[in-house]
Write a protein that binds this DNA or RNA. Structure first.
Length: 470
DNA sequence: TGAAATGTTGGGGCG
DNA sequence: ACGCCCCAACATTTC
C-alpha cells in the first residue's frame, strides 16, 4: 500500500521550500509525480485570480524542473483525474496540502474516502497555515470568535521551522502526458486587461522571497503607522503570494519573529496581520457558513439592496467619491487594493449604498489577484456588521473624512483617478486601457458627481439599522 | 481598524 | 474685579 510512486497533488502550495508534503515525499525516497488539476472548483474562480493562478502554475512548473521534476497538468474532476493517474502510473498514494474552504473540504473529503476505499494511500498535510484551525482552542476547548483573545492564544504557539527546498528529487520513471497550460486559457475572462494587471504581479517563490526581504529591510520599521496610508508603500504586499502558496507562511512568520527579536518596530504589527489571515481560516473552518451568508442570522432581516445601478458605478470606480473610486480602480488596474481602501470601499457599498456585502464580495472575487475566500468573507462581514467580532453597524466610514486622515495630500486618489489630476500618471491612465470598451470610458472625461450625498447615505443606513433593531 | 452630536472646560474679550 | 459670552479644545455619548 505504501510503495509505488507518490502523486503530489498541488493546489495552493506552489513552492519548493517550507513545504511539508514535498519534504516528506522526498524523505520517503519514493518517486514522485507532481500534478496540478484544473477541476471544476478551480474553474469556478473569478477572472483575475484564475488568470493569476495560471502565472503561478507556470512559475512552479519551471521551479520543479530545476529539481528534476515535472508538473503534469490535467483537467477534470479531481477524483477522476487522480484515479486515472493512479491507473496509468501504478502510484501507491496521493498526497496534498489541506485547504479549508467548504468547497475544497467537500471535494477533498470525497477524494480521500474514495481513494482509501480503493486501497490507495490518501494523505493530507498542513502547509497553508501556521496552525491547523482546530489546533487553536479556547480554555473551554472551543474556537475563537473574537480576534484579540485568538491573537493572545496563538501569538506564543510554537511554529515548526520551515523545511528546506529539495535540491534534487526522484521523479517517476515515465512521465504521463500532460495538458498544456496555454490550452486552458485561464486568462480568458481577463482579456479585458491582463496586460495591464500583469505589470503589477510578482509571481513565484523567488519573487515572493525577495519582496519579503525588501519589506524586512526597511518598511517594517514604520509598518505600524504607515500601513494605514494607501498612498505609501508601507506594507509587505505578500498576500498575493500567500494566496497561491508561492511562499510558505511559516517562513514568513519566522522572518517576522527574527525581525522582532532584532527590535524592529513594526514586526509585532506585521505578525499580528499574519494572525488575521490565520484567524479568518480558523473562523471558516469552525463556521463554514461565513462564506455564504450572514454569520449572524438576525442580519437576514436587514433590507440589503441586491445588485443595483449605484453598485455598478461602485464596481466601475465611478461613484464620484474620490477615495472609493481610487480604491476600485486600484483593484481593477493592479489586482490588489490597499487594506484601508478595502475597508472604506466596503463600508461605502454596504452602508451608503445599502447594498448586500455579497455583491461586493463577488466583485472582489472577480478582481483580486490575492483573492482568499476566508479573508474576504471575514472582512466583508466585519465591515457590514453581520460577522463575528464585527464592527457595529453604526460604525460608518466617511470616505471624505478617511481621505482627509489617510490620504491628506491626495497622492493615492490622484494616482488612480485620472480626472483628479492635471497630469495623470501611468497607473491612472492604465485604468482606461484595462476596462472593457463597453464601459465607454475615456481619459479626459468629466469626473462624475457623487452618486449619493454622504450625509444622506449615512442617515439612510442608520435609519434602516434602527428600524431593524426595533 | 468611525463619525457626529452633545457635554464640559477654560481662556480671552468685553462691558 | 467681575460676570458674561463666545468658542475652541477636548471628553463623552450616541448612532
Amino acid at each position: 500500500m505504501t510503495d509505488g510512486p507518490l502523486i503530489l497533488w498541488f493546489r495552493r502550495d506552489l513552492r519548493l521550500s517550507d513545504q511539508p508534503m514535498l519534504a516528506a515525499a522526498v524523505a520517503s525516497g519514493r518517486p514522485v509525480l507532481p500534478v496540478f488539476v484544473l477541476d471544476p472548483e478551480t474553474e469556478a474562480l473569478g477572472a483575475a485570480p484564475k488568470w493569476r493562478l495560471g502565472l503561478s502554475v507556470e512559475a512552479f512548473g519551471k521551479a520543479l524542473e530545476g529539481v528534476g521534476l515535472r508538473l503534469v497538468l490535467r483537467r477534470g474532476p479531481a477524483l477522476a483525474v487522480l484515479r486515472g493517474l493512479v491507473a496509468e502510473t501504478g502510484a501507491g498514494g496521493v498526497w496534498w496540502s489541506r485547504l479549508y474552504d467548504p468547497a475544497s473540504v467537500a471535494r477533498d473529503t470525497e477524494v480521500k474516502a474514495a481513494l482509501k476505499g480503493e486501497g490507495i494511500e490518501a494523505r493530507s498535510f498542513s502547509g497553508h497555515l501556521l496552525h491547523e484551525p482546530w489546533e487553536v482552542e479556547t480554555g473551554q476547548g472551543g474556537f475563537y470568535r473574537v480576534f484579540t483573545p485568538y491573537w493572545k492564544a496563538m501569538r506564543g504557539m510554537a511554529v515548526a521551522a520551515p523545511a528546506a527546498a529539495p535540491t534534487r528529487s526522484r521523479g517517476v520513471e515515465r512521465w504521463p502526458v500532460g495538458e498544456r497550460l496555454a490550452d486552458w486559457r485561464l486568462g480568458a475572462a481577463m482579456n479585458r486587461g491582463a496586460a495591464v494587471v500583469a505589470c503589477y504581479q510578482s509571481v513565484g517563490e523567488a519573487a515572493a522571497r525577495e519582496k519579503l526581504g525588501d519589506f524586512l529591510e526597511g518598511p517594517v520599521d514604520r509598518y505600524s503607522e504607515m500601513r494605514d496610508f494607501p498612498g505609501v508603500a508601507g506594507t509587505s504586499r505578500l498576500s498575493e503570494n500567500l494566496t497561491y502558496g508561492e511562499i510558505g507562511i511559516r517562513e514568513v512568520w519566522h522572518a517576522g519573529l527574527r525581525a522582532r527579536a532584532e527590535g524592529r518596530a513594526g514586526a509585532e504589527s506585521f505578525l499580528r496581520e499574519l494572525a488575521w489571515r490565520e484567524f479568518s481560516s480558523h473562523l471558516m473552518h469552525h463556521t463554514p457558513r461565513i462564506v455564504s451568508g450572514n454569520w449572524r442570522a438576525e442580519w437576514d432581516a436587514f433590507p440589503w439592496r441586491s445588485d443595483n445601478p449605484e453598485a455598478e458605478r461602485w464596481r466601475r470606480g465611478m461613484t464620484g467619491e474620490p477615495l472609493v473610486d481610487a480604491a476600485m480602480r486600484e483593484m481593477y488596474v493592479t489586482g490588489t487594493m490597499h487594506n484601508r481602501a478595502r475597508m472604506v470601499a466596503a463600508s461605502y457599498l454596504t452602508k451608503h449604498l445599502m447594498t448586500h456585502w455579497k455583491v461586493g464580495l463577488d466583485w472582489f472575487a472577480d478582481c483580486l489577484t490575492d483573492w482568499d475566500p476566508a479573508a474576504n468573507a471575514m472582512g466583508w462581514q466585519w465591515v457590514a456588521g453581520s460577522g463575528p467580532d464585527a464592527a457595529p453597524y453604526f460604525r460608518i466610514f466617511n470616505p471624505a473624512g478617511q481621505a482627509e486622515k489617510f490620504d491628506a495630500e491626495g497622492r493615492y486618489r490622484r494616482r488612480f483617478v485620472a480626472e483628479l489630476s492635471q497630469a495623470p500618471g501611468p497607473e491612472a491612465m492604465a485604468f482606461f486601457e484595462a476596462v472593457p470598451r463597453s464601459w465607454g470610458f475615456a481619459p479626459g472625461q468629466a469626473y462624475p458627481a457623487p452618486v449619493v450625498d454622504l450625509a444622506e447615505g449615512r442617515a439612510r443606513a442608520l435609519a434602516a439599522y434602527g428600524a431593524g433593531k426595533a
